[in-house]
């Protein structure tokens, strides 16, 4: 009994590892689904060195505006239903908030666009916001300091913010790829998406409550960099300017670019790290 049990346990370890590594091999052989070259703006360095000697990169998405009609808003009720959310409850119902607050995230595939239309729309939206803020300051309805902070933040976003945007979602990655054929600009990746019921606030009484979706998490957003492909990363530390600080003087200058490949299972790996 003991000998047989021991053999089963040993075989189980070997078998499970074979299955896992066969999956990795399947992902990395054949025609890759996408190959994109991103910079430090989109791939932040994660490295603690002291207790964890591994080096990895964290994929950063640009935050989306969540109001219909602004920026590259696309994740509407129809899209939510397409990915499987039940949106049949009327948003005017008295228990609509209870209902939609209880809906849990779903796994689906999202399309990430690098430095494309969404980035341009986002910049235009930010500029519009800044112009509106300038007008308010001129009319004395807003403080000068708020405008200064807004300008600094916009400058920091233009120099250091991620240009990677979620632009579409769907449960069938092959169909998404048919729609987004540029494999050097569009990445398809598994992600968690969630819905949100935007309620009417006091300033917008004429607007009805609306359902919007958002990407809560990219499921493979932390990418390990193997020792033989670390290049310049081995000597770098995570930059302080990954976050915006009002009193920061220095400018952001990305220090590296990374060639990232997504395989047949939509799982990424680092192909090459280059000095910028």
């Amino acid at each position: 009994m003991k000998r047989r049990g021991l053999m089963i346990a040993l075989a189980l370890i070997v078998l499970v590892n074979i299955i896992v590594l066969a999956g990795v091999n399947y992902n990395r052989t054949g025609e890759p689904d996408a190959t994109v070259t991103l910079t430090e703006r989109e791939l932040h360095l994660v490295s603690s060195k002291k207790e964890n000697s591994g080096v990895s990169l964290k994929l950063e998405l640009q935050a989306e505006p969540d109001k219909p009609g602004e920026g590259s808003y696309w994740f509407d009720r129809k899209k939510l239903e397409e990915v499987g959310f039940d949106c049949s409850k009327s948003m005017d119902a008295s228990d609509a908030s209870d209902y939609y607050d209880r809906v849990l995230p779903r796994k689906t595939y999202v399309v990430l666009e690098y430095e494309g239309t969404a980035w341009k729309l986002w910049q235009a939206g930010r500029e519009k916001q800044l112009r509106a803020l300038e007008a308010k300051v001129a009319e004395g309805r807003e403080e000068r300091k708020t405008l200064d902070t807004g300008r600094k933040r916009f400058k920091w976003e233009l120099e250091g913010g991620s240009r990677l945007f979620a632009v579409d979602a769907g449960n069938d990655p092959a169909r998404l790829r048919q729609r987004y054929t540029d494999r050097t600009r569009y990445v398809i990746t598994p992600a968690l998406v969630r819905l949100n019921l935007l309620r009417v606030d006091a300033a917008e009484k004429q607007r009805k409550p609306v359902l919007v979706g958002y990407v809560r998490e990219i499921l493979t957003d932390e990418i390990h960099v193997p020792r033989d492909r670390q290049g310049i990363l081995a000597s770098l530390k995570p930059a302080e300017y990954y976050s915006f600080y009002d009193d920061r003087k220095d400018n952001f200058a990305p220090r590296y670019t990374v060639k990232l490949t997504y395989g047949r299972r939509y799982e990424p790996w680092v192909e090459q790290v280059m000095k910028k």
Binding site: N17, G23, V24, G54, L219, H224, R265, E267
Partner: peptide, 11 residues
């Protein structure tokens, strides 16, 4: 298994 998941960025 958890480290293989990290090393090869497995979903």
């Amino acid at each position: 298994l958890s480290m293989l998941g990290q090393i090869y960025t497995i979903t």
